[in-house]
Computed example of a mutant assay.
Amino acid sequence: MASNDSIAKENQLSASTDYTKIVQSQSFQELLRKKRNFIVPLSIFFMVFYFTLPILTSYSKVLNSIAFGTISWAWIFAFAQFIMTWTLCILYSKKAVTFDRLVEKIIKEAKG
């Protein structure tokens, strides 16, 4: 449990931090740009890939054909969504290390 002194120091540091200056800093802008350039394309890909299955199964017969045995392409596509989700999570987890480094740099700059 944190002592009252450490809580007071933390509150004092928070009160003295100029968040406007941090937001306008080059490092913070770089962090936002890198996150946006990574997250937006992956989010668009995820949404398109995710909604393709229900749209194709509702409005066409494309995925109804047999892929092999008694398994249709719809089942393969549905399973691929799990793989896609895991892959995107792994990619983000690895990329988050870069984001964390940028955050540490921003914190160091803010402390002076």
Rank of each mutant, 00 (worst) to 15 (best):
I107A: 15
E109P: 08
S58E: 03
K35T: 00
K61I: 10
D18H: 04
K35V: 09
I106M: 06
L42M: 14
V23Y: 15
F46I: 12
I71V: 15
K21D: 11
I106N: 06
A80Y: 01
S43D: 07
E30C: 05
I55T: 14
N4H: 12
N4G: 07
W75F: 11
F38M: 12
L53G: 02
K108L: 08
G112V: 04
E30D: 12
I7D: 09
I66C: 05
C89F: 08
Q12K: 14
Q12E: 15
F82I: 06
A15V: 03
R101K: 14
F28E: 05
I71M: 13
Y92T: 11
V48Q: 10
S14W: 04
S27N: 12
S14R: 08
M1H: 13
Q81S: 00
V48P: 04
A2L: 13
V97C: 00
Q29N: 13
E10P: 00
E109C: 07
I7Q: 08
S16Y: 07
E104L: 06
L88T: 06
T17H: 09
E10S: 11
L102Y: 05
T17D: 12
V103W: 11
I55M: 06
I76V: 14
K34R: 10
L13M: 05
N11E: 13
A67P: 11
T17S: 15
I7A: 05
I44T: 14
I90C: 02
S72Q: 13
L53M: 09
A96E: 05
K35L: 05
P54H: 01
P41F: 06
G69H: 08
I106G: 02
F82M: 08
A80C: 10
I83V: 13
K34G: 07
I71N: 07
A8G: 10
K105N: 10
K105V: 10
G69Q: 06
I66M: 15
E104Y: 11
T57A: 08
Q29I: 14
F49Q: 06
L63V: 00
I106Q: 05
E104C: 10
I7L: 14
S60G: 12
L32E: 09
P41A: 05
F77S: 12
T98E: 14
W86P: 01
I83C: 01
S65T: 15
S3M: 05
L31K: 09
S65I: 15
E10H: 03
T98R: 04
N64P: 04
